[in-house]
């Protein structure tokens, strides 16, 4: 018994150590953001941010267009995620439940689309939008993020739909529901964890994206937060305090989102994988 307790303590210690290592970079980001500039560039490390200053945060949020960027980011990213998830849910249903010609090719295309390096699609996407006359409009950005996230969301949701026993749906349909009704009443609620898990990924991808926003949007008040983050890194140098403060603020929404959905996210991931 004593030996077991000893090994349990050891395991816990390892657990704490791993937690510290994993969290340290994030701590260091926040700590740096709270230090006065003189303490940041110092040859003796200040492990605790003392004295604390909020000057970097203040500089960060008072940059021109911060509010516009924040609003644009939220609107564009949320719109793209919602659109992507809804479409993907239907597409996932179509590929997981229905047999149609070209279905196999469609699945392959989805896999292929995921292998495409995003940076290389910059110019093709620009040309597509230029031909469509959509440049410099926020919906174009929504559409771009929608297209960029769609292959992944379809692919992941397909796994989730496949994990839902088809019998449930059939039972609903014999009870008089249409296929769509069965989808809405039976499949959709069961799909919820999957939708959460998938939307988190779509959210992060779109939230982070910098180059497409920069190229598609021309006017500065139509840009997004990653562009604001980049203003702290100029050709002439990096303002560490400002960058760290901005990074902290930039991370916060994602973090809040994550902590809120963490439990569902993990159970969703494992549910989807069973039949993945």
């Amino acid at each position: 018994m004593i030996r077991r307790r000893g090994s349990r303590t050891l395991v816990n210690l390892v657990g704490v150590a791993v937690a510290l290592v994993m969290a340290f970079p994030v701590y260091w980001m926040a700590a740096t953001a709270l230090k006065p500039s003189g303490d940041i560039l110092s040859s003796t490390p200040h492990v605790l941010p003392w004295p604390v200053t909020f000057e970097h945060f203040q500089t960060a949020v008072t940059r021109p267009f911060f509010v516009d960027y924040l609003r644009n980011s939220l609107v564009v990213v949320l719109a793209a995620v919602v659109l992507s998830i809804l479409t993907a849910a239907l597409a996932a249903l179509a590929v997981a439940r229905l047999r149609w010609r070209g279905r196999r090719a469609y699945l392959l295309l989805i896999i292929l689309a995921q292998t495409a390096p995003l940076e290389a699609l910059l110019i093709p996407a620009f040309l597509v939008l230029r031909d469509a006359g959509l440049l410099n409009r926020l919906p174009a950005l929504v559409l771009t993020y929608f297209m960029v996230t769609l292959p992944f969301t379809v692919w992941t949701l397909r796994g989730f739909v496949a994990a839902i026993p088809v019998e449930l749906e059939e039972a609903a349909m014999t009870d008089g529901c249409t296929r769509l009704g069965a989808f809405r009443r039976v499949v959709f609620p069961l799909l919820a964890p999957g939708l959460v898990a998938t939307s988190v990924f779509a959210f992060i991808t779109a939230w982070n994206e910098f180059m497409f926003a920069l190229v598609i949007m021309q006017e500065q008040d139509k840009l997004t937060l990653p562009v604001w983050l980049a203003t702290f890194r100029t050709a002439f140098g990096t303002d560490w305090g400002g960058t760290m403060a901005a990074s902290t603020l930039f991370t916060l929404p994602v973090l809040v989102f994550f902590l809120l959905v963490q439990r569902r996210l993990v159970s969703g991931m494992s549910a989807g994988a069973v039949k993945g």
Binding site: P64, L122, F210, M211, L214, V215, Q220, V227, A230, T231, R233, T234, A235
Partner: peptide, 9 residues
């Protein structure tokens, strides 16, 4: 007002 990051693109 333009930023330096990605200015070429």
């Amino acid at each position: 007002v333009q930023q330096w990051d990605g200015i070429g693109e």
